[in-house]
Amino acid sequence: MDDLVGRYVGRTALVTGSTRGVGRLIAEHFLAQGASVIGFARSPGTITHPAYQHVEVDLADPMAIQKAFMGLHKSAGRVDIVVNNAAVLTSQYAMIMPPGAAQAMVNVNLLAPFIVSREAAKFMRKTKWGRIINIGSMAASLEPIGDSVYAACKAGLSTLTNVMAKEFGAMNVTCNTLAITAIETDMLSQLPRDKIDLIIAGLPIPRFAEPADILNAIDFFASEASSYITAQTLYLGGVN
């Protein structure tokens, strides 16, 4: 793998939800491989690196996202890779799901990737190169009880990705979904452990995802060699 260190030199990657969990993992990976990274998150940045720029933005607010991109037009000047990772999860039976929590999931998990992708595409159309990777979930396929809105958002995210792939294809911009399985993060702690363990036990590869599993797929989609791979949803762990 050593010969691939530095594979993102000259690239600028934008990662949403970069302060913790999978987003931080991906942001640090891009930095380690030579990319400049812009992190979007509601909370203050947690990464200290000379090539990291943190932007505090409420991803539930489309206007706030557009203002953040206004700033990027002045500062960064380019966005080559986008990873729409930020997500919120409230797992609850539909009949007692608070409407506000449902709305927040729609805003952050579905609308925000749309706004971020379309604004980033405006950069990518100038350079005629781009990679948009949306972080999906096994929930879209497994449809677990309690996750009606979350699973619907993630399923919708795949559809959104596929349509954007058609619109952006002529600009040499690929759009794909990486549907991850459970990984040990703060989000996971919001779910009943026995429920998660039961789901994991039923997977073809019955274990939690490791960081390397996710980063391998990220590198695959972001690779120069993947220019002919778009509108795909890749499920980890054998989910389909």
Binding site: M63, Q66, K67, M70, H73, K74, R125
Partner: peptide
């Protein structure tokens, strides 16, 4: 439209 919007936004510093 995108080019015009971007230029206007930059020039007038408002979305």
């Amino acid at each position: 439209i995108i080019d015009v919007e971007t230029a206007l936004t930059m020039e007038w510093d408002a979305p």
